[in-house]
């Protein structure tokens, strides 16, 4: 009886994270360019002074301070009371925001699957370092809050949770991010995995995140058919989200124009992000998650 869940677990893990990838990820660590205050004691240095073995600073004694932290050696030498301060080690808040709009269903593998894999991989790194890992679908539902995972033992619940995340719900990116920001005021690392295909624009959404003073990583996922469409003939293109129609007669001219538009779009997103301290990474679904994490994200300083 006990075998069945185990084997199921393994299968589910393998669809999102292969054992090889897991082995690689175990040695990695999420890095925050900022030092945030955590909620619980963790493995990270905190700005907060607390109880740890690492010395941070001295300060003058004021009445009411805990006498246990007075540096008596200093009192002996200087005849003044100083309090010894130690660095506090805290946990890190790590958020993965997955765009679940219909446009994410395209590609092979689909952008949505890819996003889930990426979120799982980054989440596992966080779990290994006992960070607070929260993976939230951007479906704009304010009532349900995503669970927080912590500790390696929560790998299976996290994956099970990710399996349950379904795409759909065409909420605009801005709305969904705004909802997230309202519910999560804590600082930390935010990885936004999206295709940025929102007709209302992605700029507002990023501004909300920037306002949260979070360490923001934007992973722009595009499928190969978006990067280099293989279509021909006279076509009626239907938008899967709002059923908008665009009639095209595909010619080399049009394809060239599309490619230049796409390049322009990516360039704008990169510029916008870099101006606001957001680390932008564009990836294709054809690039493996393993490669993306171990190479590109490492280059960009998200993991170590």
């Amino acid at each position: 009886m006990s075998q069945t869940p185990l084997s199921q677990n393994t299968a589910a893990e393998q669809t999102l994270l292969s054992p090889q990838l897991l082995a690689k990820l175990e040695h990695m660590e999420l890095i925050s360019r900022k030092i945030f205050r955590g909620r619980m004691k963790g493995e990270r240095k905190s700005r907060r002074r607390g109880q740890s073995v690492e010395f941070a600073d001295f300060r003058n004694y004021v009445a009411g301070d805990d006498l246990r932290f007075i540096d008596w050696n200093m009192y002996a030498r200087l005849d003044k009371l100083f309090l010894k301060l130690f660095l506090e080690e805290e946990d890190l808040h790590f958020y993965s925001l997955i765009d679940v709009s219909d446009s994410m269903k395209f590609g092979s593998p689909s952008k949505f699957e890819y996003a889930k894999q990426l979120a799982a991989a980054l989440g596992y790194i966080g779990l290994c370092r006992t960070d607070r890992v929260k993976i939230e679908p951007l479906d704009g539902k304010r009532s349900t809050s995503a669970p927080v995972f912590r500790g390696r033992k929560n790998l299976w619940p996290m994956i099970q949770y990710l399996q349950g995340v379904a795409s759909g719900g065409n909420v605009s990116l801005t709305e969904a991010v705004k909802s997230f920001c309202l519910r999560n005021s804590g600082k930390g690392i935010v990885v936004l995995i999206t295709d940025l295909m929102d007709k209302q624009g992605y700029e507002e959404a990023l501004k909300y995140l920037v306002a949260q003073e979070m360490d923001i990583y934007l992973i722009h996922v595009l499928s190969q058919e978006e990067i280099d469409p293989e279509i021909a003939g006279d076509l009626r293109l239907i938008d899967c989200e709002d059923q908008d129609v665009a009639e095209v007669s595909v010619s080399q001219r049009l394809l060239d124009r599309y490619r230049s538009t796409l390049a322009q779009f990516i360039g704008q997103a990169r510029d916008f992000s870099s101006k606001r301290g957001i680390v932008y990474t564009m990836t294709s679904t054809e690039r493996s998650v393993d490669r993306l994490v171990s190479r590109y994200l490492r280059q960009r300083g998200l993991v170590r």
Binding site: G233, L235, R236, L237, I238, D239, D244
Partner: peptide
């Protein structure tokens, strides 16, 4: 005779800009 065959795409946004 121009009967365009319908194709669903993630977003017509880029296409719309292109045409």
């Amino acid at each position: 005779k121009l009967r365009r065959s319908p194709v669903e795409v993630p977003s017509t946004w880029l296409w719309a800009k292109a045409i």
